[in-house]
């Protein structure tokens, strides 16, 4: 395994994913802000949540890149389309299973069944994160496709 390649391209891919999501949020195509969602697990302060969440998101980006790298090694090939294919599966998992379990994991997230409480007020994502806008799955999917394609295209497979 190329440790340097994983670190570098895992970082670049995460930055691109974050940029696509932040850009679509800035253009009001979605209200999903992953760093805020992660950071608000630890603090109600919006500014602090964004900062903490950004750090966590970067770390998760690197960790997930390890799975991609493992897949490349298992297949003995790393191409942009192979990376994009893993990205598609990754996005599907995040948008379906990941988002559905968020209200159970997140201490500040409300649920449709119980409604908001003094502690739990953050809007839950719903199926495919559609609560954050109907275009959310599209841009979350695109961001993950870019993430995987970058890793696949640039991760240097030894040998």
């Amino acid at each position: 395994m190329s440790f340097g390649g994983w670190l570098l391209w895992g970082f670049v891919a995460t930055v691109v994913l974050t940029t696509v999501m932040a850009g679509s949020q800035g253009l009001r195509l979605t209200r999903m802000n992953i760093p805020y969602m992660l950071g608000s697990m630890f603090t109600p302060s919006r500014d602090r949540a964004k900062a903490i969440g950004f750090g966590l998101h970067l770390m998760f980006g690197w960790l997930f890149a390890l799975i991609y790298v493992a897949a490349f090694h298992a297949w003995g090939a790393a191409t942009w389309w192979l990376g994009a294919a893993i990205g598609a599966v990754h996005a599907l998992f995040v948008l379906t299973a990941g988002m559905r379990i968020m209200p159970g994991l997140h201490p500040r997230m409300a649920s449709e069944e119980q409604g908001p409480t003094v502690m739990r007020q953050l809007e839950p994502p719903g199926f495919l994160a559609l609560h954050y806008g109907v275009q959310t799955p599209l841009f979350a999917g695109l961001a993950h496709l870019f993430y995987g394609a970058l890793l696949g295209a640039f991760y240097p497979l030894p040998g």
Partner: peptide
Amino acid sequence: FAAQWQAIIPPLGDR
């Protein structure tokens, strides 16, 4: 109202 972020949904009552 939430424009750019996940909405904060306020409870009523004491809050």
